[in-house]
Design a protein around this nucleic acid. Structure first.
Lengths: 219, 219
DNA sequence: CTCTTTCTGTTGTAAATACAACCGACTTAT
DNA sequence: ATAAGTCGGTTGTATTTACAACAGAAAGAG
């Protein structure tokens, strides 16, 4: 687990905490490392979670499949990001979604109660972590609202424009790479892949954008 | 403002805090009361917010209108609920949505920094409020994921079933009242009102449910 | 009470989407 | 090298949805 301390240092959760302090906090927070192969489930819908988790290697999707096999990708977790923040409250109930490794991944689990209950003075940076967690959850909240903004658009084209222009803004460039292939993007935006592919090509023919694989450019 | 203390006592934010303690905390948290008439904007997209707010009277919608006049209702705030938790972080940027009073409403604003920075021992219950805020944000997060689950369904019928069965579950009865009229429900689920109305009637004719105004019964 | 406004359901048409099936390019495994 | 699998684009059709327009019922104003 110690090899991931430099990664933890760069996460929102441990922002401003020195590496040796993180090292000291690992046991205080009862940190546990788990590893997953590509395609493995980290957590399944219906399970109960009493941990805050941080992805330290690989990539995860928060997703849900319905009876008919339609997949909805609720969120994508990149290295350094957290998940499980929606289940901090004691009465928060079972997981609503599956969490799946889309690459070989490593996840560190932290005991929720140990985080939010500030411990003895041994952890001098604990209160900073609590505040970081505040900000991180708050920001995740905002991310979800943004995603709602995308998929509440009525047409596939509008959803694409909404999503792509936010990515351009976020990456601060008209040229950018998206972290999804076509099927994943379709699942993320809740549309049919072929219809979306069709629409993307129409938009390209109309001169709105260019793309090749995951590389997009808005014009 | 004092007349709303009994209401505050019943909110998630002040759960477990006695009324006289809340009274004492109001000034500590720099609480300010604002009132709005039905239809007035509490906040507008693009503004900056440095407060956590609690609705103590009336009803609010978090919504957004696009260029073509399509309205998306992101969330509904009932008495005792908070909003603005997505903008706690210092770098969280401008509001993504409008906040509108759909009834005559009263809102109390609390200074964010004063909440998350635990003050002197005068506020003995401050740390409890911090923990309450944690749980409340976390739960809001979960609510947003649930809403994503509804509108990521492909057809109007599936969206309706998803929403209505959750309401039934939440209200713990096959008969329940929803807090939206038809237009608002359509805006909430991101579908066309007339198409939705049509679909509801088809479902009724097929014996899936009964309804009258806002009163629904799943069969 | 009457007039106006709002709400809900209905219908027809045009547009958009889902679905299935297929193809070619490319990658990976054996 | 060959075969199998993955990925993205294309097409046609059936289904679904949006949109506009209208009508009756209910609610609210004067």
């Amino acid at each position: 687990m110690k090899k991931y301390i430099p990664i933890l240092k760069r996460t929102k959760l441990f922002a401003g905490v020195a590496e040796d302090e993180i090292d000291a906090m690992l046991s205080c927070l009862d940190a546990r490392l788990h590893e997953y192969k590509k395609g493995e489930y980290v957590l399944r819908e219906g399970e109960h979670l009493n941990h805050i988790t941080v992805l330290v290697s690989g990539e995860l999707h928060i997703q849900r499949d319905d009876y008919w096999g339609n997949r909805a990708i609720v969120n994508r977790i990149a290295v350094g990001e957290m998940f499980g923040e929606a289940y901090i409250a004691p009465e928060s109930g079972a997981l609503l979604n599956d969490v799946v490794a889309v690459e070989d991944s490593a996840v560190i689990f932290f005991d929720v109660r140990r985080i939010i209950t500030v411990c003895s003075s041994a952890c001098r940076f604990h209160s900073m972590v609590v505040q970081n967690l505040f900000f991180a959850i708050s920001q995740k909240n905002k991310t979800l609202v943004q995603k709602l903004g995308h998929i509440s658009k009525r047409t596939t084209r509008e959803k694409l424009i909404s999503y792509l222009s936010e990515e351009a803004k976020r990456q601060n460039s008209a040229s950018f790479t998206i972290p999804f292939n076509r099927q994943q993007l379709a699942d993320f935006l809740s549309v049919d892949r072929s219809a979306m592919s069709n629409e993307l090509c129409k938009m390209r023919d109309e001169g709105l954008l260019e793309f090749e694989k995951n590389q997009f450019k808005l014009l």
